[in-house]
Amino acid sequence: MTLEALKPEVEIVLANSAVDVTIRLAQVCELLQQNISYYNWVGFYFINEDNDQELKLHAFAGEPTDHTIIPFGKGICGQVAVSNQNFVVPDVKAQNNYIACSIFVKAEIVIPLFKEGKNIGQIDIDSHTADPFTQADERFLEYINQKVSEIL
């Protein structure tokens, strides 16, 4: 399924207000992970309510991770929490500040999620494919985050 074809599917999942937000986020993660061959792990991190200098994993699809809490500045996700900028990593081995989640991960993309102009979290994608992410992925994930922000 193409990125564009997934947009209405994501909207349907997110619009189902009868389902808890965390479950809807997990369903979006599953939808992306199952339909985009190079999205091997998909997760949403949000600012930790207990410590506003950390990210906390709220929903994901893929292999379980030990990285459920990430300090600001640490790893790709932690850097995005500080920079407020998209971060596309074509080769994770080339990053000094990379937190290894799996020996199979070759690339990562992290897109910040904004609510009322404030960075409140992010979507994180790990890929077992080297350098798979394009500008189309960035725009698609920005779209996903915009739709997510509308239900928060």
Rank of each mutant, 00 (worst) to 15 (best):
E9V: 14
K147C: 02
Y98D: 04
P71T: 11
Y143I: 01
S83G: 11
I36A: 09
L3A: 13
E4P: 00
S102Q: 07
F133Q: 03
N119I: 00
K7D: 05
I47F: 08
L14W: 14
F46K: 11
P64M: 15
V19R: 13
W41R: 08
V82C: 12
D137W: 02
L152E: 07
E150D: 14
G78T: 09
E150N: 13
D124N: 11
H58E: 15
L25W: 12
K56L: 14
H58K: 15
P112F: 04
E9H: 14
C101I: 10
N97C: 00
T129R: 07
E30P: 03
M1L: 12
I12A: 10
F87Y: 11
E138H: 01
G78D: 03
K115R: 07
E4R: 13
V82H: 01
A5Y: 10
Y45M: 11
C101Q: 07
F114K: 03
V19D: 09
M1R: 06
Y39A: 05
F46Y: 14
V88N: 08
E108K: 07
T68L: 13
L6N: 06
I76K: 04
C77Y: 04
V19P: 04
D137C: 04
Y143Q: 02
Q79D: 12
V110T: 05
L6M: 15
S17V: 09
S149R: 11
N145T: 07
L3W: 01
E30W: 06
K7I: 14
Y143P: 01
D52H: 14
E142A: 08
A130P: 02
E63Q: 12
L32E: 03
Q135T: 08
D20V: 13
D91T: 02
F114G: 00
N51F: 07
K74M: 12
I125Y: 00
I103P: 00
V21F: 06
D20Q: 13
V42Y: 03
M1N: 09
E142P: 01
V13G: 05
A59N: 08
D137F: 01
I70V: 15
N96K: 11
V88C: 09
L152T: 12
P71C: 13
N119G: 00
D131Q: 06
Q122H: 04
N84M: 02
H128A: 05
Y143K: 07
L57H: 00
Y38R: 07
L32S: 03
D137N: 12
S83A: 15
Y45P: 02
H128E: 10
D126P: 00
A136D: 15
S17H: 12
L32N: 03
V110N: 02
C77Q: 04
F114V: 06
